[in-house]
Design a protein around this nucleic acid. Sequence first.
RNA 1: CGGGGUGUGGCUCAAUUGGCUAGAGCGUCUGGUUUGGGACCAGAAGGUUGCAGGUUCAAGUCCUGUCACCCCGACCA
Length: 408
Amino acid sequence: MHYSQLFGKTSKTVSADEESVNAQYLIRGGFVNKQMAGVYNYLPLGLRTLKKIQNIIREEMTAIGGNEILMPTLTQEESYKTTGRDTMDVLFHTEGPGGAKYVLNPTHEEVVTPLVQKYTFSYNDLPLAVFQIQNKYRNEPRAKSGILRGREFNMKDLYSFHASEESLNEFYEIAKKAYHKVYARLGLGDITVLTYASGGAFSRYSHEFQTLCEVGEDTIYFCEKCRIGINKEIIADQTSCPECGNADLVEKNGIEVGNIFKLMARFSSAFGFKYLDAEGKEQPVEMGCYGIGPSRIMGTLVEVFHDNKGMKWPESVAPFKYHLLALGKEDETFVEAEKIYKNLISKGVEVLYDDRRGVTAGEKFADADLIGLPIRLVVSKKTLAEDSVELKRRDKADASLVKISDLL
RNA sequence: CGGGGUGUGGCUCAAUUGGCUAGAGCGUCUGGUUUGGGACCAGAAGGUUGCAGGUUCAAGUCCUGUCACCCCGACCA
């Protein structure tokens, strides 16, 4: 991509209102644009990153047998009356012609349960897992912290359906492992920990995945031996590590980057979703749900990986791998840089090429630091005199010259 | 939803006890000089001060209402 063709510009300033680091850098870097509180436009750089996060999640969910589908945003209010959730205060309500009442889905149990019910009759059809990556709508009384907590946000939600609690438990553990893989691939593996949280009426605990981070809004108690957390909301019930019994817990802040939950028959029974067992008897369907918010992940990555100059994207989710800068005013520099650019992309490498003329070196360096691609390549009169480009990693201080022939 | 704060060119901010034609920087455009860390000079465009009422000779400034945004808290299957 030629930077001069890219929609979205960097900015030196951002409103003093934006305190959160993720909002400041994502807006200044031209990744996102805020439309209103908790509602964002994703510009090309931000969208590329969001898609990479989504794809990592998609691959891992597919790997455990998840079927990707896409459910609607709009749903008839009656479905929420069926489950008694029509009074949730985060629901956005809207009306159709003749007074028909709709809601914007804040989550999709009310859609997925009757949907799967239509195709599932016997134990032969189970277990089954479906997931989607879609936007959710929650009328948060207070949107905050940039894209960490929006009123419209992106979410992957997977739902599993089972003939027995044993089957649910088995899949739940598989999903847990898949989540760990996702965080590892996102570069968050070392600081993202399984955390016990409130389980609601049907199971003692649910599990969250918390990325340990100063700015996290959740407080967890952390067992350093097992790398397991306990959410503050249940610390009164659970004062020691559930895995090893260690009571020497450390208080830490975390960003909730995932949540897995055993729903049991909470929703299937509301919709009368049963299956026939081997004896031909009706049995309740057991369900689990498993959520990760790619948009929140993107904000978390900025909170975790940045310095005072800008963002530092892990290679797995960076919008491009290389940031190629052409410095100076000589035509030859731009001609050579263009050749290098074309060569790299012909090899399938993702390159953002800053081809702007009349822009000072300082400005290009500052933009590159802000945007935070993993590797910066500089082409200038100086480097061309050595038949080289300068290579610098965003997370390292030193740069080195690399022969153009070696680079390609 | 409670508390606190803020709304002024595209962006970041000024504007004295209410007082003259609402200023500056950034960005944008034109011309010129620069070209390895947001460089410089000259010129230009761009505003019914969030919205609606009110007080006053006079309102960006005061009052009432309303909307929006930010922070703290509550909330967050």
